[in-house]
């Protein structure tokens, strides 16, 4: 009776249509002592024994994911520190750039002032040149012949 079931389960097993419960029954049947297994089915025993034995294998290496949590904590602090650093950076860079701007404006104004001074002096120079021209013209009028020679 039980053998009938086993044969039927085995047939279903190879067709992929057996249920988990039927497969468990097969594994139990083949896990028993060799003499309790029907001789014509003995060749299937290694399959089921192998699969049940495979289930007992476990990883021996200890895996710590806890380090991940600590790392995350560090990230939290790191990001806080980064925010502070960036804020300070922006603040100071803003400060210095404003400082530089004022400096540049001052330099510009000084330059403009200096250029005005040069311009004024130049104008004074040309005013003097007018006298020179006057002198030249009178000279020409007084000494026309000599000039022609």
């Amino acid at each position: 009776m039980e053998l009938d079931n086993i044969e039927r389960y085995l047939e279903k097993y190879f067709e992929g249509s057996s249920s988990i419960a039927e497969e468990k029954a097969l594994q139990d049947y083949f896990a028993g002592a060799e003499e309790h297994i029907a001789p014509h089915l003995r060749e299937y025993a290694p399959v089921f024994r192998y699969f049940s034995r495979s289930r007992d294998e476990t990883s021996t290496r200890e895996i710590r994911i806890g380090t991940g949590r600590r790392k995350k904590h560090v990230y939290g602090w790191l990001s806080a520190a980064a925010v502070v650093a960036i804020a300070a950076g922006i603040w100071f860079s803003g400060y210095t750039s404003r400082d530089k701007e004022a400096e540049a404006r001052l330099a510009y104004e000084e330059t403009v002032q200096a250029l005005y001074m040069i311009g004024e002096n130049l104008n004074k120079g040309t005013a003097r040149m007018e006298y020179l021209e006057e002198f030249d013209q009178t000279k020409k009028r007084i000494l026309p012949e000599r000039e022609l020679q």
Binding site: F14, E15, G16
Partner: peptide, 13 residues
């Protein structure tokens, strides 16, 4: 699964 089980059986035989 059916194909794999049959392949195992064949190899075993």
């Amino acid at each position: 699964l059916s194909r794999a089980r049959k392949a195992v059986r064949e190899e075993l035989i």
